[in-house]
Design a protein around this nucleic acid. Structure first.
Length: 281
DNA sequence: CCCGGAACCTGAAGGC
DNA sequence: TGCCTTCAGGTTCCGG
């Protein structure tokens, strides 16, 4: 499932094939993939436009065109595959975007959660996103301020795109393990030191996964069709029952706010300490 | 404002 | 073998 590292990888690997190229045609195999405008208007307005840039914001991909912005969200199972000329369709291809020069992007999405929008102004879509966790302005101080008033469990907070953009279920678990913080602790309960650890862990986990070209746990593929390797580095995510790489205790799986959550019950204790006082559930 | 839950989807996995 | 149920989870929407 594409989260920030996967979307960043897709952006990086699509970019050299798209910049400066013109869209010559669209095939919608499933119209529901277009959120706005109508499928007909989407196609007619898109054809003929030139791609001037690609950026990522949170888990959104933004294709900057000379007459608008194509916003794609891959949700759970979407992937964007680069093909030369006419490639064979599998039954999960939902749309094809043809470019001059014979390259095409195949939007593959078994679960049909993925969405495309063609807009003039991206801010209604991405305006509520929190800071980019790998940008310089995302400091431990910023994280501390944003966690201060939050009573929800950290696992839910990290998945909240308005708190920090781009973190999903897998990397929330990895960051909390790396910071040695229990996923059910509340945002406001963290000590300053714990906030610093969490801040550093978020950045390390995400950057590490980008370096590994993303995690192929389910249906994530890079535009080339290759898989990423970040899942081989997972220490708790999807590792239920396996020994913790730090202490050997079996990794547990619990449900937090409806999300499957993996953690080490020994390294990530619920107990916490403020000054000389120790608290626990 | 904040929280919880349903809806959107369909393949995979488990139960009987 | 096969039918049925449940689960997976990013985002949006709705109700309390």
């Amino acid at each position: 499932m594409p989260e920030l590292p996967e979307v960043e990888t897709i952006k990086n690997e699509l970019e050299p094939f798209l910049i400066g190229h013109r869209i010559t045609g669209i095939t919608l195999c499933w119209e529901g993939i277009v959120r706005e405008p109508s499928p007909q208007e989407f196609c007619s307005r898109l054809v003929g436009q030139r791609v001037t840039g690609i950026t990522r914001r949170g888990k959104y991909l933004l294709f900057h065109l000379d007459g608008g912005i194509l916003i794609i969200h891959l949700k759970m199972t979407g992937s964007l595959l680069l093909k030369q000329g006419t490639a064979q369709l599998d039954r999960f291809i939902r749309a094809i975007i043809y470019l001059d020069g014979g390259v095409a992007i195949y939007f593959r999405d078994p679960r049909k959660f993925g969405v495309m929008r063609l807009v003039r102004d991206a801010s209604p879509v991405i305006g509520n996103l929190g800071p980019e966790p790998l940008e310089d302005d995302f400091s431990a101080q910023v994280l501390a301020e944003r966690l201060q008033k939050r009573k929800a469990p950290l696992k839910a907070i990290l998945n909240d795109q308005s708190l920090v953009a781009g973190i999903g279920n897998m990397y929330a678990d990895e960051a909390l393990f790396s910071a040695r913080i229990h996923p059910q602790r509340s945002g406001s309960s963290l000590s300053p030191d714990e906030v610093k650890r969490l801040h550093r862990s978020i950045r390390q986990v995400l950057q590490g996964a980008i370096n590994d070209k993303g995690a192929s746990v389910n249906t994530y593929f890079r535009p080339s069709g290759e898989k990423g390797t970040a899942h081989f580095e997972f220490r708790v995510a999807h590792q239920g029952g396996k020994p913790c790489p730090r202490c050997g205790t079996p990794i547990e799986r619990i449900t937090v706010r409806g999300r499957g959550t993996y953690f080490c019950p020994r390294c990530q204790r619920f107990n916490y300490r403020i000054g000389k006082y120790r608290f626990s559930s």
